[in-house]
Design a protein around this nucleic acid. Sequence first.
DNA 1: TCTATATTTCTAGAATTATAGAAATGATTG
DNA 2: CAATCATTTCTATAATTCTAGAAATATAGA
Lengths: 122, 122
Amino acid sequence: MEINLIAPMFKALGDPTRLKIFQMLRECGAQVTVDESGEVRPIQGATVGEVCCSVTGDAHVTSTISFHLKELRNADLVTSERRGKHMICRINPVAVDLLVKSLTSRCDGCAGAETSCCEQPE
Amino acid sequence: MEINLIAPMFKALGDPTRLKIFQMLRECGAQVTVDESGEVRPIQGATVGEVCCSVTGDAHVTSTISFHLKELRNADLVTSERRGKHMICRINPVAVDLLVKSLTSRCDGCAGAETSCCEQPE
DNA sequence: TCTATATTTCTAGAATTATAGAAATGATTG
DNA sequence: CAATCATTTCTATAATTCTAGAAATATAGA
């Protein structure tokens, strides 16, 4: 488990505003579509205004929401792409999988301790 | 999903030192035992010194590690209990389950948006 | 009770982060 | 091209967090 990849993700989710944004986008990204080439893509996402509305109850986009979206993007939890005047935001499902694995997988952490000073208490 | 319960947990895991501690304890808590009454308990944990050793490579306990353990305890991710001279630390599996659910469960976030300003982009 | 061991708390400084308003950017429409 | 809409970046300030050393607390053993 790459601590330096995962920790910033958890950190990004550690702010209540960002966690709300993330959960909102997770919902919005639930539906996927499979195109002719067999590729699976989310069929929707949310504009920054919609994110803002969902989180603050007001469609007016503040620099604070924009800042938090950037943090989520920097942590690789959210992607965004321009569509006309809007930016469409989506969660990155690969990142979510990584986080789940980091909470549930076995035998990749403690076993790696390179020292031997770590005895079990008697 | 209780944002105000979950966000502090993610925040606690957002520091690399704390994430290392958490992963180390997750390993140490992997083994459980079932006693006569049928109760399942972790059979081991780690002392603060062992945590420190695993994370810093040095058995000497610093106030920094103690501080981070306290943050993990405050976030309800870790419990600790005195055994003689030592404190035995363990992860709280209930908290871990909550986190996994918050990353994987469906239909508990966006649907709760109480406003109607959130239309899908055309 | 004195000493040693294990861990926590206190304190202060440095660094980072969140917030909000103003200005800037990018895209669309008239 | 001017006006407008959607979003981001810049800037400053307030608040929080991390770190480390020193002092304090708790337990066990001589």
